[in-house]
Write a protein that binds this DNA or RNA. Structure first.
Lengths: 234, 234
DNA sequence: TACAAATGAGAGCATCGCTCTCTTTTGTAG
DNA sequence: CTACAAAAGAGAGCGATGCTCTCATTTGTA
């Protein structure tokens, strides 16, 4: 299945990869909203208008960065779960740690994915949505496996769902072919947002300047509480 | 304590308030990073350089908006808790709903507070930090009252804290004069971040385009789970 | 080798934050 | 009531930004 690539295509791909690399650098050093096509062109040794031969607009470059970042985050999570132990709680904690570690290592790219939507920019539905679901799909997979293995204790509280939520969850269940009960899926969504809430607070500095000397310990505790919310059998 | 205000001061305050109003409008319509001093000046019927008589820089205007937004959010929470019932869980849910309602009504200002830090902008420690603590102080107050009233059941899981976290929590306890045990305070911090995680996911559209027809029901469920994490007695 | 496509250069437009100088308004002190 | 100083606004200008247009050059290939 080796695609035949002409020298032209190869050169184009190299330049494109270089543009992405420089854009990633700028993103990391100056932040998402300060990403400048002119600066990328200058770093590339190219005049600003020439970069439009490769990227249609600044927004398109942002979209490429978003998709790439989602992909890298998904890869980081997959790698962490690659040869992980079977216990659901442990797998959940590994997933959570992988998200946190990636976010701390790449705060600007994390902010691009989970921070304020950049002004005027709307992600084209198709490309980004699929890439963005990898983490939650993995999370749901862990929950699903635990449920099927009987490793989830019965719902401690609030087992019944309101009708609208029940319908939404039912749609998710059919779309992703899930076997878990509705209340578990709904809790999974809540745990999902709570996980990213903890990571965002830490990465975005919401805990304040001097309140936490070691946020990782609070994170570990919170993840254990979230795991308990899912009813994972100890 | 009526300050004597000269006509000059009054005119200045009026203009300043007008600048803030127009800035708030721009923030809402075009997003935080697109906030433009020149556009504010134009809306005000003033040339761009004249606005620098009132605001030293774009960053200073952003700081003013941040402080004002924190203040409004704090007011919204305080109002919701004003004549609230005494049950801790109910008070917690009221606080959570107030945060969510404010965030949905003012997504751009919410993003200014809890989204990606704006590029190059660093909040001056003094002004913003104090304003930013009002919600978590209220949350801790609810927890504290419940604990003192004996309305919190013993820690279901993970009662002991790792040493670093224990030290951080101890510092918080003395600073805010809290009586609650360390594990409860730590859980409060986790619930705090989880609450804002849920709100951010909804406001920033992280749940995806078609996954939730009514996010409020998922929110209600998640808040009940978080309340249970705090051990509030039903 | 000759041609066409791909690529780059350069000028230009409207916008931005911000600084500088100059003019006008405005409150107030004498 | 008038004269003056302080405050406020006007305008030009600097170095940026995203993006478009036209023109020149490079480059693979037929």
């Amino acid at each position: 299945m080796q695609e035949i690539r002409s020298p032209r295509e190869l050169a184009r791909e190299r330049t494109m990869a270089e543009i992405m690399r420089l854009a990633r650098e700028q993103l990391a050093s100056h932040g998402a909203a300060a990403l400048s096509l002119r600066a990328v062109a200058k770093d590339l040794g190219i005049v600003s208008s020439a970069v439009y031969r490769y990227v249609a607009s600044r927004d398109e470059l942002l979209t490429l960065l978003v998709v790439e970042a989602y992909s890298d985050l998904g890869d980081a999570v997959d790698t962490a779960l690659k040869r992980a132990p079977l216990a659901a709680e442990k797998r959940f904690v590994l997933l959570a740690r992988a998200v946190r570690a990636w976010a701390i290592a790449e705060p600007a790219r994390y902010g691009l994915l989970f921070g304020t939507p950049v002004p005027g920019y709307h992600a084209p539905a198709g490309q980004t949505v699929e890439a963005g679901t990898r983490v939650v799909v993995r999370l749901m997979g862990i929950i699903e496996d635990a449920w099927n293995a009987g490793d989830i204790t019965a719902s401690p509280t609030v087992p019944s769902l309101s009708p609208g939520l029940a319908a939404d969850v039912e749609a998710l269940r059919t779309e992703y072919d899930l076997n878990s009960p509705g209340w578990l899926i709904a809790r999974g969504l809540g745990v999902w947002s709570a996980l990213f809430g903890a990571v965002s607070f830490e990465v975005f500095g919401q805990y304040g300047p001097n309140t936490l000397s070691d946020a990782s310990e609070l994170f570990e505790l919170s993840m254990r509480v979230l795991a308990a919310n899912l009813g994972f059998r100890g």
